[in-house]
Write a protein that binds this DNA or RNA. Structure first.
Lengths: 244, 244
DNA sequence: CGAAGTATTGAAGTCCTTCAAAAGTGGTGG
DNA sequence: CCACCACTTTTGAAGGACTTCAATACTTCG
């Protein structure tokens, strides 16, 4: 499929709104491709555009003086990349491609112009910011109050649900391009411990995970273990709509 | 001072904009007072208004099945209370008064009407959402990658800076109404451990903390210990302005 | 003064980390 | 096509940060 056709489909799927899809497609300029491991922006830099992820997976992270890394967001196709940085004019995180990616930029001035014509784009931006925040809340609850096994199970549930909603997997399996080291940086654990906890999930026949592919063998039990309540992702119909 | 005069001053201080201050004061209706321990809203409920905190301190938290609590935000005077809930139409957290509080509601329909006249309020809302997210990122980094001592030191720095910016303290001291149990729920630690770590900060002559009042005895060393870089709070002039 | 909440202390145990090394995997070039 | 290299995964052993349980002191407030 041609990238821009694929992109339009993706946005339609992700926003659930025809009008918004048109706005977005109209707002974005030429796609930009990045290799795995390449950075889109570094912490403290000034973002020059708002990026929509068209293909691949991106992580937002920060480093602490000790050198270790904490991931603060994961983005899947259809997501806006760190919208708050666009609002604040400065990025609090570094953005790095976990897989080869394709991004669609919306230049700052074009965004401004379009928002004067209609509030659609701003409303989408606002909703996306709220959703990103809600996801981070869930991670924070995990890091503060859930043991490693549940935390990992929860992440698996989240990624699986979001991948499926982005059309990149089905009920039973999806792409899962994170290394165990990546997972450790998301969950605030050591690689060694992630490995051991992962093996517990595998030997409990809850998941299979190999060569970048995740299989859910028993979603019901996994969801119970993780205390996963997918409502907070607002993945239902009309993702772009809100209750206001 | 009369509440509404005090409130106007507070918003002026907090937003740094005369125009915005007028909009906010105009948008809010009668103040509402709540006692310490009272709830403004519970998780999963639908917020009926956008609240501005005029006096006191509020916590946003969630409970996990085990019964333990994780705090996800703290609000000081001048802050909007959980703006994302207003956007999404559902609250992901419970809001509870840590001290006696005074809140100024902006009814949903009044907010809508005002935003049609001018984008000022929406812009403020958006900026506040971005700032809340940035603060939570910092907490998450702490929970994932910083040991308890640094995490506590960081919280102390943050609260002190925000209190001062809200006009509720000076360089050396401010109100600090959290119990050790509250602190534990913020940092994702046990009360016992918070107590021990707090004693380390005290015996290092870094802080004094008693009867709800915090004193910073050596800000420089505390900031170094905590790796606290206050930029992320955007407390400088024109808090309401942004780089877009 | 009594009651309820808050702070403090000790002891034992657990979850997770660190260090270190070996085994497996995938991609690249000879 | 195979050999090699970097990266990733896996395993073991020891140590440390933090938790839990339980009891005691201290505050605050009616």
């Amino acid at each position: 499929m041609h990238p821009s056709t694929e992109f339009t489909e993706l946005i339609r799927l992700s926003t659930g709104s025809e009008a918004l899809t048109r706005s977005v497609v109209q707002a974005t300029s030429t796609f930009k491709a990045l290799e795995k491991g390449e950075h889109l922006i570094h912490a403290d830099a000034r973002p020059q555009a708002l990026f929509i992820l068209a293909r691949g997976v991106v992580q937002a992270y920060r480093r602490v003086p000790s050198g270790s890394k904490q991931t603060l967001a994961l983005y899947v196709p259809g997501d806006m990349l760190d919208p708050k940085a666009f609002i604040l004019g400065r990025s609090s995180v570094s953005l790095c491609a976990i897989t080869p990616i394709l991004i669609a930029p919306i230049a700052k001035d074009r965004f401004e112009r379009l928002t004067q014509e209609s509030p659609t784009l701003v409303r989408w931006l606002t909703t996306r910011m709220a959703l990103d925040h809600t996801v981070l809340e869930e991670w924070t609850i995990g890091m503060g109050r859930r043991p490693a096994l549940q935390r990992l199970a929860h992440l698996v549930c989240e990624i699986s649900a979001r991948m499926q909603a982005a059309g990149m997997g089905d009920d039973a399996s999806c792409a899962f391009p994170l290394t165990q080291s990546d997972i450790a940086d998301v969950l605030g654990l050591s690689v060694v411990h992630v490995n051991r906890v992962l093996q517990r999930l595998r030997s409990s026949k809850l998941i299979e995970l190999q060569s970048g592919r995740l299989k859910l063998l028993d979603r019901a039990r996994l969801v119970t273990l993780a205390d996963f309540e997918p409502d907070y992702l607002y993945l239902g119909v009309g993702k772009g709509a809100n209750g206001a």
